[in-house]
Design a protein around this nucleic acid. Structure first.
Lengths: 226, 226
DNA sequence: TTATTAATTGTACCAGTGACAATTAATAAA
DNA sequence: TTTATTAATTGTCACTGGTACAATTAATAA
């Protein structure tokens, strides 16, 4: 078989920025890096792209390995290709951001990797250019969420509107009017109200809702959300 | 120096989807491929990422080589990494889309590469997965242009509103009301009206406008456009 | 002078948004 | 049992921006 002669070859990796929402806070999942260099430093979860897989598949594999979850919302963020970003050897990294329901991952796996959830505003210093990746991921998440209802990916099956609003406010780093928010979100037809109420945070209680999966799927064809 | 052992290394390339607007039509620039395999077939302009450059830089270099232009609007499209997308050897390609003023490129360079502008709806069959790249680029351009005023990148210094509207209609594959379009676009403050008129397509003539570079630059901080 | 044509401006209605007030449903205190 | 309290939800209203479509304008050519 022929080859393209004299062209340099590189390692290609994927790195995942994994977002979750818990306790009214937006969080991301970090791991203690298990190989040199920078072993035992905090880092994004990543891995090399194998010979038989696409970068997308590699990211899904990495995510499965860490959380046990499949079919997670995953989107290309950017490609990071500074020649010297990895001091050992040139490695291009394809960055992805993922949204998961924080209550669904497998604790055991997380422990194996010495992984931990960090509130988005309390991140430690990360290896290489990973802090930059996180910053770009936040920006992209904010933008994307303003047009697509992807934030539901981070909520449990049953959730309340005030809970949803907290998530929106965290992502957008802003406050909004509760009345208007409630109306706007229910008017989308994306939510189905359940009988049950959550009374943990108020006397009156807030109704639980679940996602209308049909409208949710359809909404991905259309654009522009809130 | 250490290395990450036993990890496969790949070629990394960039491919550019170059959009232009001329004669009321949205067009893209294709080249006759100069190396095996698929030599002499139509293809996107591309090249390998060199040892000392990022993919972004590689894309800019490739674009300069083909058109003579620098500082062109260039945006990441996607990464294409099917293991067998290049039959000779595994190559991951970083796709970019570029917007250029079609009247500015250097004809000589284009001739050297046997390049040609094709109306977007009359494309030939391209090598590898390049047709897919173009399809994705069109979609992304449409989406992006609905939020950012990037389409001006494809217009000459002086342009008329009907001309601008044709471009919008081509990109969005739709028709819009001329009156409303005119008002909306002028109300953005992005345009400065010149004294001169273009009378090539009507008796009355349409005023030429130029871009208000200050507001244009500012508009990139904000979001949401038309 | 008039007809023609595309560019531009005018008008009126409708829908969505946001600020803010009012009401409701529950609990806990008096 | 009544009342106070609090968060959730619903109401109101003015304002804005979009859209459809009609009217006007500025030039040319018949």
């Amino acid at each position: 078989m022929k080859e393209y002669v004299n062209q340099p070859h590189y390692l290609v990796a994927v790195d995942c920025i994994v977002f979750g929402f818990d306790d009214g806070q937006l969080k991301i999942l970090l791991v203690k890096r298990g190989l040199e260099p920078e072993i035992n430093k905090w880092s994004l979860m990543g891995g090399f792209v194998g010979a038989e897989e696409t970068p997308d598949e590699a990211a899904n594999r990495v995510l499965k390995k860490l959380t046990g979850l499949e079919g997670v919302y995953l989107e290309l963020l950017n490609i990071y290709g500074e020649p010297d970003r990895d001091p050992i050897e040139r490695t291009l990294s394809v960055g992805y951001f993922a949204l998961i329901d924080i209550h669904k991952y497998e604790t055991q796996l997380i422990d194996n990797y010495h992984a931990e959830w960090f509130p988005i505003n309390e991140l430690p210093k990360l290896i290489f250019d990973h802090n930059r990746m996180v910053a770009e991921a936040r920006k992209k998440l904010k933008f994307k969420a303003s047009l697509h209802p992807i934030l539901f990916e981070m909520l449990p099956k049953k959730f309340t509107i005030p809970q949803l609003q907290m998530l929106f406010e965290q992502v957008n780093d802003t406050k909004m009017d509760t009345g208007n928010f409630s109306r706007k979100i229910t008017s989308t037809g994306l939510l189905i109200r359940l009988e049950e109420k959550d009374k943990s945070s108020s006397k009156k209680g807030a109704y639980y809702f679940k996602l209308n999966k049909k409208s949710y799927a359809e909404s991905f064809n259309n654009l522009l959300f809130l």
